[in-house]
Each structure stands twice: as structure tokens, then as C-alpha cells.
């Protein structure tokens, strides 16, 4: 049968649901162990953060798509949470292998890391549902009717009040940690990445400016530029 946008979206959603059937909406035993091994156990903070983000997401989804669609917003959020846990576990396993450590207390108590990872997981879900186009008007953090009409990237950044620069940081590791992502989804994430690098990260208020300033000052004092810089 001919490929249509609806057929493509249905295939993509089926693949996502299939991939997430074995992943629960709670941390797996392995992930819970990583949490317990932390100097400061992040379990409760993770749970509370997800509750708050879930409410914000469903509410904003309803505002953007229509009040009768809040239930669909909750459904997408639920899939996003499963993907978030699944990818977090894969990332931690990979980091354990690379660094030979099991205590990821600092990373797992970093709220920005969790919010960025969740936002990326939700962007994957949204892309699977066929939201692959981008807003013409660009990023509008203040909201307003034109910006709230749809839920395309970078809508998710506004929902969670997340800096594009921080979202950018998780994209590559996310793709590496999730071998189930389809070519189209990877392409979508790459488009998000390019949009951030070329436009969004350079807007007023971006943390990138302060970081560049710090980097410049540090570099001048040391007179040495390391490859990592």
C-alpha cells in the first residue's frame, strides 16, 4: 500500500509502543539500584519532578491542542516517562562501563539533566506521533496565541522552562543509548540540534553567553587551551 503521512505515523507509534511494552512507568530494578548507590538518593526527587512536569505537560498540551485533548497529552507523557527511564538506564550502564564507577550521585541529583532527558524522550514521542514540522515563527518563550497553537519543537523547552543549550547536551548521548530509534526520529533530533546550534542557543538570556565568557576568562588566565575547551 502507498505510504501516507497517517500510515507513517501509525507505523512509528506502533514501533514506539512495541519498544516500550516491556519498560514500566517506574524505575526498573537496575535503575533503582543506581539510585540507591548514590551518596544522595534521588528517588523521591525524580518522582516529584515527574509529577510536576506531568501536570505542566498535560495542561500545556490541552492549551495548545484543545481541552478535550488533555487525555492524549497524558498518554504521550506516560510514553515519554517510559522512554526516559529506559534511556537513563542505558546511559548509566554505558557510563559505568566507561568510567568504572557506580555512584552517579552528582549527575542523578542534577535537575537540569533529568529535565533535559525527559524533554528529549518526549520529543521522540511527539516525533513518533508525526509532529515533525517546525514552527515558522521560531522560538517564543513568552508564549502567546501563535506560539501555543501547536506542540512542535521548541515548544517542549518552553513547557519545562529549559534552556536550549541544556537540551542540546543530551541529544547525542540519547541517540547513542537508544538503538531502537528510527532513522526518521534521529533525523528529527538532528534537526532540533541544528536549530539550537544555529538559532535558539544564541538568543538573549541563553546560558551560553555566560559560559563562553567564563571559558574566555579561564583560558586567558591559564594561557593554555585544552582540547576539551
Amino acid at each position: 500500500p502507498p505510504q501516507t503521512p497517517i500510515r507513517a505515523a501509525m507505523t512509528s507509534i506502533q514501533m514506539l509502543r512495541g519498544d516500550l511494552t516491556s519498560t514500566g512507568d517506574q524505575p526498573s530494578t537496575t535503575l533503582a539500584t543506581y539510585f540507591k548507590q548514590c551518596t544522595v538518593d534521588p528517588t523521591q526527587d525524580v518522582r516529584k519532578r515527574l509529577e510536576a512536569h506531568g501536570q505542566a505537560f498535560s495542561q500545556r498540551f490541552g492549551q495548545a491542542v484543545g481541552p478535550h485533548c488533555v487525555v492524549y497529552g497524558r498518554e504521550r507523557f506516560s510514553l515519554g516517562v517510559r522512554k526516559y527511564y529506559q534511556v537513563m538506564e542505558a546511559m548509566l550502564k554505558s557510563e559505568e562501563k566507561r568510567l568504572s564507577v557506580q555512584n552517579f550521585s552528582k549527575l542523578l541529583n542534577d535537575s537540569t539533566f533529568h529535565t533535559s532527558l525527559l524533554a528529549c524522550a518526549l520529543e521522540v514521542v511527539m516525533a513518533a506521533y508525526g509532529v515533525s514540522s517546525f514552527k515558522n515563527g521560531g522560538y517564543n518563550p513568552g508564549g502567546g496565541e501563535a506560539a501555543d497553537r501547536d506542540v512542535c519543537f521548541p515548544w517542549i523547552l518552553d513547557v519545562f522552562d529549559l534552556a536550549a543549550f541544556d537540551f542540546y547536551k543530551v541529544i547525542e548521548s540519547f541517540i547513542k543509548a537508544d538503538p531502537t530509534l528510527s532513522k526518521n526520529i534521529i533525523k528529527h533530533l538532528e534537526t532540533c540540534e541544528n536549530l539550537i546550534m544555529e538559532r535558539i542557543a544564541w538568543r538573549t538570556g541563553s546560558p551560553l553567553f555566560e559560559l563562553l565568557k567564563q571559558e574566555h576568562e579561564g583560558g586567558a588566565a591559564e594561557q593554555v587551551e585544552t582540547p576539551a575547551s
Binding site: 546511559m91 557510563e95 568510567l99 552528582k106 547525542e172 541517540i175 547513542k176 534521529i186 533525523k187 538532528e190
Partner: peptide, 21 residues
């Protein structure tokens, strides 16, 4: 299987990007 360009080196990971060692 896809043409995504990976930029992180083998010794870099999510921990470094969020300033954790």
C-alpha cells in the same frame, strides 16, 4: 544505519557534559 554525525569522543559522555566526574 543512519547518517547522524557523532561528535563525542570515546572518553566523553553525559557525565562530562553535566560537569560530573
Amino acid at each position: 544505519s543512519h547518517d547522524y554525525h557523532f561528535g563525542l569522543e570515546d572518553h566523553e559522555g553525559i557525565s562530562e557534559l553535566f560537569d560530573c566526574d
